[in-house]
Design a binder for these strands. Sequence first.
DNA 1: CGCGCCGTTGAGCATTGTCAAATGCGGTGG
DNA 2: CCACCGCATTTGACAATGCTCAACGGCGCG
Lengths: 250, 250
Amino acid sequence: MFRTEVAYQSRSGTVIPLAPHLQPSLACVFERQPIEIFEPGQPIFWQSDPAKHVFEIVEGLVRVFKILSDGRRVITGFLYAGDLIGISLMDRYLYGSEAVAKTRVRRFSRQSFQQKMDQSPEFRPSLFARLSDEMAAAQEQMVLLATKTAEERVCTFLVLTARRDREAFVMSRLDLPMTRQDIADYLGLTIETVSRTFSSLASRGAITPEGRHQYRIKIEKLMTLAGEVAAFHDGSDMHDGVNARQFASA
Amino acid sequence: MFRTEVAYQSRSGTVIPLAPHLQPSLACVFERQPIEIFEPGQPIFWQSDPAKHVFEIVEGLVRVFKILSDGRRVITGFLYAGDLIGISLMDRYLYGSEAVAKTRVRRFSRQSFQQKMDQSPEFRPSLFARLSDEMAAAQEQMVLLATKTAEERVCTFLVLTARRDREAFVMSRLDLPMTRQDIADYLGLTIETVSRTFSSLASRGAITPEGRHQYRIKIEKLMTLAGEVAAFHDGSDMHDGVNARQFASA
DNA sequence: CGCGCCGTTGAGCATTGTCAAATGCGGTGG
DNA sequence: CCACCGCATTTGACAATGCTCAACGGCGCG
């Protein structure tokens, strides 16, 4: 009953694994909230701030990250239009979040959000589905970090990022608004290794730079180079790949 | 409800950061289910099986893992008494699970479980809390895999494992029922590196072998060697247990 | 008592990190 | 419009951590 129609449609509704987000049901919780704008680099909230709000990204790109005591940063995910930030339901944010590109969000008090979830059963399925997707994405990221080489990581990243963007997926034209440092912190690599890998991919024609943050990509080539996906029982691969919103976090 | 007490005291400890899990409310969902026993190595379910059941671990130790197409294995977590398996609410399990030690579990059909969650608001807070804890753990694991050295990983593992077990935490006596291969697959290392790291730790007196799967540990030394914990503001590194509780009564 | 499995240890090597310097994109001001 | 400047990015040389391959050790079980 949690796992309802809505959740299922989030998967199968769109043919291309574009954006299973934007469940109408959850989106309309935020519908009447005013839109706030965050400029590139602007924080939305900080790690261990009291978790007062839940945010819906209307448009833009957000990075979600943890800062370690030695100053290093780990990006646990990039969030796109339709994603929610801060649903983890802890009393403090376990991570910080900043706009990467100009981002428009709607804000909802967490208290009201929880109330809404409690009182309106029709919203719960998609909330749970979202948490599940997020968990699946986290596990995929663990697999990436635990087993993949630098090149596989970068290619995986490019493929999954391309999937978030219809233009990228269909037109082979990929925008990467985030910096190299962002990518490095996300993939558990150094900026130099990321850079070298991009160069190497370019030299082999898997990607072609068209400006600093735009590339023409050969998606099949990248998919091959991305290496292993979870195995077991034929259908499962597709299943995982299609369902898991690889970048969701929060 | 009192079954809860039993479970708390049975083996895995009690007051210490032991289990934010085992919220009495959730435990009693499983209360009347018969106990099933899984012997070491025995699978509970396989990756991409239809997710028909939710399990509560009454006693024992379970590994949860993904198998990659090249045969490698990534262990995404170890689960202890009081933990739940299979709450991810996808229609298929995204991972396999096997008993590491002799394990007793209670099984609940996922359908009934979801029904229960839907109909009984009093259970929802602790379910949410649990999902949040799981997410927090996943993010910590990402941090570990993205930034830590072999030694830091092993020490982190030892400290966190010790925290699950009162005897280990208080008496400095730690049981590690899992194999080196399990540990390696969990920490994103090879079995050789894990072994070497154990030897090195032993030679420096941070741990003292007392049999193949038992060690006497110096927890403070290990905590130091474990390196970075998330920074920023107060003592946010205790997040796992602390935050979940707020929902216990919501 | 011996076999097999799990774990340990060793040597060499590869990938990736570190440190340092050069390059060039993109924005700004003349 | 062009030149310049700052900063992200790239590239290079080198070091090191952890992996691979290989052999050995020892505990447990038949």
